[in-house]
Amino acid sequence: MNLNVNGRTHEIESPPLTTLLDVLREELGVHSPKVGCEQGGCGACTVLVDGAPRRSCLLPVAALDGAEITTVEGLGAAEHLEPVQAAFVHHYAAQCGFCTSGLLMAATAYIANGGTDDREAIAEALGGHVCRCTGYVKIVDAVAAAARGDEFDLSVTAAGLFTTTMSGGAA
């Protein structure tokens, strides 16, 4: 059977009931999808299967013959980031980074399907992803910014002189 991963077709040799996650990480050396709970509960292994976000830990590879898989490796590289990646950098939306790959793929699909910067809609779409570091605030900020099409000058991002927009106050 064949899998198209990030634009390249591979013939898969793993047994048919191997999970997509294990095929990606162990057979193909694609390491951005993370092995989290392996029960579909945390979202860290999320990849795009024919454009839709799926838990790769729950998918037997035999069911995916000919499918197109996209992982973070198929998004932009460091020197030309996709808008959603740039938004994550600018808004400091990652801390330890373990949830980030899955969230980037889910956010990519959310925006590709016309998702807006509405916070409740973002929480509805990405609610299945667990993050223990950020408290989600800056992740929602980043996805909202990317959905709006905000542009960022990442050369001034490091000093971190901006604060959250998630305020219930006058702003």
């Binding site: 989290g36 709970c37 029960q39 509960g41 945390c42 973002i122 929480a123 509805e124 990405l126 609610g127 299945g128 992803h129 667990v130 993050c131 223990r132 408290g135 989600y136 605030v137 992740i139 929602v140 604060t163 959250t164 998630m166 305020s167 219930g168 106050g169």
Partner: peptide, 19 residues
């Protein structure tokens, strides 16, 4: 026995936040 048996906060538990 399941990851979901332990209730860590999710994005939908996020309240309005001020810092």
């Amino acid at each position: 026995g399941q990851f979901g048996s332990y209730l860590a906060p999710g994005m939908e538990d996020l309240p309005v936040m001020d810092t």
